[in-house]
Deep mutational scan, measured.
Amino acid sequence: AEIMKKTDFDKVASEYTKIGTISTTGEMSPLDAREDLIKKADEKGADVVVLTSGQTENKIHGTADIYKKK
């Protein structure tokens, strides 16, 4: 799966169907969080990951919607 910015995804959204939401939390780098989200998306058969939230304090927390091409 590839990560797309919401603004970029909005241009092609009609080509995809939302298949779920994924999240990651833990003591990790932003890059590790990104890789974890991609891994989870791949496991669910998603083609595209669109980040919906991200937070960093002591731990990273990120959520994303996942989509499959129609």
Results as ranks from 00 to 15, higher is better:
G26S: 12
F9T: 00
E27G: 12
K11R: 09
N58L: 12
I22P: 00
K44S: 06
K44E: 07
K18Q: 08
K68V: 10
E43Q: 09
D36L: 12
S23L: 07
T17Q: 06
T25A: 14
G26D: 12
G62E: 12
T52I: 10
L51Y: 07
T24Q: 05
E15C: 15
N58V: 09
T17C: 15
I19V: 06
I66H: 00
E15D: 12
G54T: 09
I22R: 00
G26A: 10
Y16C: 01
V49L: 14
L31Q: 15
P30T: 11
A41M: 00
D32N: 09
Y67V: 00
K40Y: 05
K39N: 05
R34A: 08
I66Y: 03
T63I: 06
D8G: 03
L37P: 00
F9E: 01
A13I: 06
D10W: 07
K6I: 07
S23F: 13
T17K: 08
D65N: 06
T21N: 08
A41Y: 00
S29I: 05
K44I: 10
I3Y: 06
K5W: 14
K6L: 09
A1G: 02
T24I: 12
S29Y: 10
L51Q: 03
D42S: 15
G20A: 07
A33L: 10
A1M: 06
K40G: 03
D8S: 04
G62T: 15
S23M: 12
E2G: 06
I19A: 02
A41W: 01
T21V: 09
V48T: 02
E57I: 09
D10C: 12
K5M: 14
E27S: 11
H61P: 10
A13H: 07
G54K: 10
M28R: 07
T63V: 09
D65I: 07
T17N: 08
T52F: 09
H61I: 15
R34N: 07
K5S: 15
D36Q: 10
D32M: 11
T63Y: 09
T52A: 10
T25S: 13
K69F: 04
Q55P: 11
E57K: 05
D32I: 06
T25I: 10
K44R: 14
Q55A: 12
G20L: 01
S14E: 10
G20M: 03
A13Q: 08
Q55T: 14
D32C: 13
V48N: 02
G26K: 11
T17V: 14
T24Y: 11
D65P: 03
A64Y: 14
K5G: 09
L51P: 04
K70F: 07
G26V: 12
D10G: 05
E27H: 12
V48D: 00
E43A: 13
A13C: 11
Y16M: 02
T21S: 12
V48K: 03
G54H: 13
L51E: 03
E2I: 15
V12L: 07
E35L: 15
T56G: 12
I38V: 08
E35N: 13
I22S: 02
A41F: 01
L31F: 10
A64Q: 03
R34H: 08
D65W: 05
K70D: 04
S29R: 06
E2Y: 14
I60K: 09
Q55R: 09
H61G: 11
S29D: 10
E35H: 13
D36W: 15
S53I: 15
K70W: 05
L51G: 02
H61T: 12
K39R: 13
V49H: 00
T17G: 03
I66C: 04
K11S: 06
Y67N: 00
K59S: 14
G45T: 04
E27P: 13
E35I: 14
S23T: 11
I22K: 00
K70P: 03
G26N: 10
I22F: 01
D65Q: 04
K6E: 09
K44P: 00
G62P: 10
E35P: 03
L31T: 12
F9K: 00
T7W: 09
A13P: 02
T63H: 08
L37N: 00
K39M: 07
G45A: 05
T17S: 04
E57L: 12
T24S: 06
S53F: 15
K69T: 03
L51F: 09
E57F: 10
K40F: 04
V50S: 02
K59E: 14
D65L: 05
T56P: 10
K18I: 08
M28G: 06
A41Q: 01
Y67M: 02
G54I: 14
K39D: 04
T21C: 11
T56H: 14
T56Q: 10
D8L: 05
T24L: 11
G62N: 10
L51H: 03
A46Q: 00
K11G: 05
T21D: 04
S23R: 09
L51W: 10
G45D: 05
A64C: 06
E43K: 08
L37K: 01
Y67I: 00
K5R: 08
L31K: 14
R34P: 03
L37S: 00
D47N: 07
K5Q: 13
K68N: 02
M28A: 06
T17L: 10
A64T: 02
G20C: 07
I19T: 03
L37H: 00
V48L: 08
I3S: 02
L31N: 13
M28E: 05
T21P: 01
F9D: 01
A33Q: 09
K11A: 09
D42T: 15
G20S: 03
K11I: 07
I3R: 00
K5F: 14
K40E: 04
V12Q: 04
V49E: 01
D65H: 06
T25F: 11
N58G: 13
E2V: 15
E27A: 13
A1F: 03
I38T: 04
A13Y: 06
H61A: 11
N58M: 11
I38E: 03
E35M: 13
L37F: 05
M4W: 13
K6Y: 05
G54F: 15
N58C: 12
I38Y: 03
G54Y: 13
A46T: 00
K44H: 12
